[in-house]
Computed example of a mutant assay.
Amino acid sequence: MEQHTVVLYGKPGCGPCVAVKAALERAGIEYVYVDVTTSPEGLEHVRELGYQHTPVIETSDDHWTDFRPDKLAALAKGLGS
């Protein structure tokens, strides 16, 4: 994964996924969205990270699940947003 790459793994109808997308966009954080319902590779990667549900947010040095305002704020600060 490239430095400063943010990947959001989500699926349609996922409320927390929408909240994470909105927070990333408000903070001006560029991200790649992977729909785990259409990307078998994305779904497998989420499972390899140990998660069973979305959203999963992955950065160059961290990953977590759910809408975590604390993590998103730290990410924005770390990326200079």
Rank of each mutant, 00 (worst) to 15 (best):
S39P: 12
S39G: 07
C14I: 07
G42K: 03
A73T: 08
A73D: 15
V32T: 11
E58H: 00
V6F: 00
A76S: 15
A76C: 11
P69G: 04
H63G: 02
E2V: 00
C14D: 10
L24P: 06
T65R: 09
V34R: 12
A74D: 15
W64T: 02
Y9M: 05
S81P: 07
T65F: 09
P55Q: 09
A73S: 10
P55G: 07
E58L: 00
L8A: 13
T65A: 12
H45W: 02
E30V: 01
G13H: 12
C17G: 09
D35V: 14
E58K: 00
G50V: 00
K77V: 04
L24D: 04
I57N: 07
L75C: 10
H63D: 08
Q52T: 14
Y31W: 03
A76P: 09
A23Y: 02
C14E: 10
P40Y: 05
K77A: 13
W64Y: 12
Y31S: 04
C17I: 10
G80P: 07
Y9F: 12
P12W: 11
G13K: 13
Y33Q: 06
G42P: 13
R47Q: 14
H45S: 01
P16I: 08
I57S: 05
D70A: 14
L8I: 04
H4A: 10
A23K: 11
